[in-house]
């Protein structure tokens, strides 16, 4: 007998959502800054989901009005000081620890107060997407991950080239060329599970196979910039 079609699909729970932290309980400042944010975002502001957090209890009315007035959609408040005000405003609550991972990074939330200062656009840029390639990269093929990391799940053959503005991860044999930090990001690295590379480069500093230590051949390895030089190190896998 055929199984009934499921009505719901449960997807991943880690979302990247803009959080707005209220620092000053001043309706005028809030309205001005939200207006400023909406102008910077342009059409991206329409329907933009946000979460609200604050250290102290405060009246959420002015903020919610300002956000909704500009088409921004407040989804919920984060549990804690806002328990009471959120209940009053009819806003759902989200436990803080659900988002702890996202909170570790400085969120793209608008900069605090000082409405006069033209804050460097805190545009919640579409999260930098990593390019994932599951097929082998064959000799003569070139893959470039513009503005992002590149993850390769199958071998990179001799004569192939994999390039990223961010890091390059090869969870297989790397026998071709791998270039990380193609636009000069010196913090980028190349990681591979089996290093047999023809060339490794980070931010324009490169080493060809001949310059790469023999004992790393066939081993998990990484390439990074340290003190302006390209270092190739083993990775303990």
């Amino acid at each position: 007998m055929a199984k009934a079609k499921p009505a719901l699909e449960i997807k991943g729970r880690l979302l990247s959502i803009t959080r707005i932290r209220v620092l000053e309980d001043d309706a005028g400042l809030i309205e001005a800054q939200v207006a400023n944010l909406a102008r910077q975002l342009g059409p991206a502001a329409q329907g933009l989901p946000v979460l609200i957090e604050a250290e102290q209890a405060l009246d959420l009315g002015p903020l919610l009005r300002a956000l909704r007035g500009h088409g921004i959609r407040p989804l919920a408040a984060i549990e804690g000081a806002l328990d009471g005000p959120a209940a009053q405003a009819g806003l759902p609550l989200i436990p803080a620890d659900v988002l702890s991972e996202a909170a570790a990074k400085p969120g793209p939330a608008p900069a605090p107060a000082a409405p006069a200062a033209p804050t460097p656009a805190p545009a919640p840029a579409p999260a930098r997407r990593t390019r994932i390639v599951t097929e082998p990269v064959r000799s003569g093929q070139q893959i470039y991950a513009e503005g992002s990391d590149l993850i390769l799940l199958a071998a990179v053959s001799a004569g192939a080239e994999v390039i990223a503005d961010g890091c390059v991860h090869v969870y297989a044999r790397l026998a071709g060329r791998a270039i990380a930090g193609a636009r000069g990001d010196e913090s980028a690295r190349v990681f591979c599970k089996r290093m047999e590379a023809e060339l490794l480069a980070v931010a324009g500093v490169y080493a060809v196979a001949e310059q790469i230590q023999g004992e790393l051949r066939g081993k998990p390895a990484q390439a990074l910039i340290a003190h302006g030089k390209l270092m190739i190190d083993k990775l303990d896998w």
């Binding site: 082998p136 064959r138 000799s139 003569g140 093929q141 053959s157 001799a158 004569g159």
Partner: peptide
Amino acid sequence: VRDSDRVLGLLAS
């Protein structure tokens, strides 16, 4: 082998 690898890349694209 390398030339075959190249051809496999073309077959896939």
